[in-house]
Design a protein around this nucleic acid. Sequence first.
DNA 1: AGCTACTCCTGGTAGC
DNA 2: TGCTACCAGGAGTAGC
Length: 266
Amino acid sequence: MRGSCVEWERTLGGKRPQELERAVRGARVARVGRRGKFIILDLERRGREAGCVVVHLRMTGRLSVEPERSEPGPWMRVALRLDKGEELRFVDVRKFGRLVPASRPADVHGELGPEPLEARFSADWLYEALRGRRRMLKPLLLDQRFLAGLGNIYVDEALHAARLHPLRRSDGISRAKATLLHAVIRQTLAEAIEREGSSFDSFYRTPEGRPGSYQHQFQVYGRTGRPCRSCGRAVVRIVVSQRGTHLCTRCQPRPRARRVRILPPS
DNA sequence: AGCTACTCCTGGTAGC
DNA sequence: TGCTACCAGGAGTAGC
């Protein structure tokens, strides 16, 4: 790479433009990988490892390779100048995305849970991991340290498919339910990938600019007030740990309220 | 340990 | 029509 151009410094997640410049100038991208929601560009110089650039698109971020001379548009935050007059552009309307130079990916993303589509994520692992925590299912499944890669949409869809209420506590889940949840998480993600993601507004696009089509498969997400596709009852929206959460109260019955002993006045 | 509240941002939209 | 106020989202942080 020939260098970098930073239009919005906070995209660098605390690093300075000079650090990005030093990281990429004269380096080549040896491979492009992914861990959870992070995209990882491994860099090398003269055949030797030379750190990485870690990208998180958050909601509205996009990466694309464009001719350097083309119009970057108002939302370009960072560009990495490639050979042959091209550049890798990070475009992000809402400025939540990150593009960070680092020695190792973990310096940016920290500890992450298993990949849902890899073998380490097994039904047995999920059952034991759920039992080992005492958290509500929704925030637990959104926690990237627990499981890497699920976001708000796919947690709501997976919990509906597993007929589990988002407020259910993780340590009360039966082995059968954990096995079902494991299967539907994989199925939900695999199908969403197959359909190139969910595009419910103009921001979400593939790198080629096409919208995904998984939004047409939504069972509950964004369907507040509309009938559940399984049973017909109106989908409900609640807020759980600051996240909009969609569910069917018939298909996903509320957790049994724990019995509270009322103490007599002393 | 695990919860809530707050922050970062801006385009879209609901309500007037 | 044009204005304002609020909402959506992932993840980091602070406080309890």
